[in-house]
Simulated assay, not measured.
Amino acid sequence: MGKNITLSVIKADIGGFVGHSSVHPGLLEKARGMLSGHPLLIDAHVTHVGDDLNLIMTHEGGRNNGEVHQLAWDVFQACTEVAKKMKLYGAGQDLLSDAFSGNIKGMGPGVAEMQFEERASEPVVIFMADKTEPGAWNLPLYKIFADPFNTAGLVIDPKMHNGFNFEVRDLIKNRKVVFSCPEDLYDMLVFIGAPGRYCIKRVFHRDTGDICAASSTQRLNLMAGRYIGKDDPVLIVRCQSGFPAVGEVLEPFAHPHLVSGWMRGSHSGPLMPVGLEQCNPTRFDGPPRVVALGFQLADGKLHGPQDFFADPSYDRARETANAVAEYMRSMGPFEPHRLHLDEMEYTTLPEVSKKLKERFIDLRK
């Protein structure tokens, strides 16, 4: 029997360097110092994508563990103080409260967690995105766990042939539904094709019930009641031995898809797969980026990371993303580059609508 492990990935934007492009090395150093050797943790890795600080932690406390969440909150608070001293942009913007309330969920930072029994070999991929929202994972997760054109194992691996269960969250009405695929595939696509509202939260193996993937689904503007940026989600995917192979998990990102976010969280653009050395978005604060780090878990220790998208085989994907970005930027303030009006409610739209209210003439009278 393997060790029972909880893998927690918790992220927050607590100050950009410079603007919204990156994280200052001082913040990374502060976070590493606070997590290194901490008695609550088995292991930890601190990294960033764009202006988001990402904490990757293993422990035995289970999901939603108050002490682990408190530790992450303390790290973000301490890093916020460093950011304020440096006058970094948006210092502490993802922290929606001054006091921890027992669980970090609903307080601003994004959280993806899963608890499982370690297998004889336990490879995991941790995806981290910047300048986009949780729905950005919908298309890749569909391809990874439900599309045989992406994942050959769905056809030829007896351990995967029966499919997977998808837990989908309705972020507006705060409810969930589980789809069993392939039977429920068409029904599921009705919902996950609207990623601004419906997001795949978790994926489970149908035969064993084992957790396969877990994402963050926090939407900052819904929690705060105002626009404070997109949510820059994280995703954990377990690989191999009855789960999709590492190559099948990475393959969807070879074809950049359009996601919401980019400049001021108000534009559509391609999700560009990049290595850590290229994860600082600059063109129009973008385009949106995704980093994939691979770890081999052994008794909770994080061996890695392997920086998957630094591979030159993703150069064509980056070229495609740049071409799509050029095309989308040419539309300026027009949809579909600018998000549709429902997604603009936390920008200047309400103020402009209020100002012009009396100038609109009702043609039905």
Rank of each mutant, 00 (worst) to 15 (best):
F127V: 07
Y142E: 05
D130Y: 06
L220P: 02
L55G: 10
K131A: 07
G153M: 06
Y227G: 08
T282W: 14
D74H: 01
D285C: 15
Y227W: 03
S36D: 11
T151M: 02
M263I: 04
A325P: 00
F191S: 01
D98P: 01
A12G: 15
M128N: 13
F100S: 09
K355I: 11
F149Y: 11
V155K: 15
T132Q: 08
L363D: 14
A44H: 07
Q218N: 10
G108D: 00
A321Q: 04
K173S: 12
V324M: 11
M344Q: 15
T348L: 13
P281F: 07
G265R: 09
D130V: 06
D51R: 04
P256M: 05
M128R: 09
G275C: 13
N64R: 14
G90T: 13
P109G: 08
L171I: 04
T320Y: 11
E113I: 00
V124A: 12
R289H: 15
D74E: 10
M86H: 11
Q115I: 08
Y186P: 00
A213W: 00
I104A: 07
A224Y: 05
E277V: 09
P281L: 00
G225I: 01
C212S: 15
K201F: 08
K354D: 14
V49K: 13
R329S: 07
D315P: 04
E343T: 01
M188V: 07
L258G: 08
G92D: 12
V68N: 10
R119W: 02
T282D: 14
D130A: 08
M328N: 06
Q240V: 14
M263Q: 04
D362S: 11
G229W: 06
I156G: 12
M34I: 13
M107D: 00
F243C: 05
I236R: 00
V249I: 12
K159L: 15
E60C: 06
N54E: 05
L171K: 10
G19T: 12
K30M: 07
V290E: 02
G62Y: 15
I144E: 09
Y346V: 00
L341S: 15
G26E: 08
L7E: 01
T132S: 11
Y327K: 04
T320N: 03
A120I: 03
L258Q: 06
R364Q: 13
V124C: 12
N165R: 13
K3L: 12
R202W: 01
F295Q: 01
R264C: 11
H48M: 09
P39T: 03
A317T: 08
H340E: 12
G19L: 11
L7N: 02
A321M: 03
P273N: 15
N174S: 12
K159N: 15
G15L: 08
L71T: 08
V190D: 14
Y346D: 09
M223V: 07
I361G: 11
E117Y: 07
T217G: 00
C181N: 13
Q93Y: 07
M34Y: 10
L35N: 13
L185C: 15
H340S: 14
P140D: 00
G19S: 12
G153K: 06
E122L: 03
I211C: 04
A83R: 00
P244I: 05
R316E: 13
L363E: 12
E81N: 07
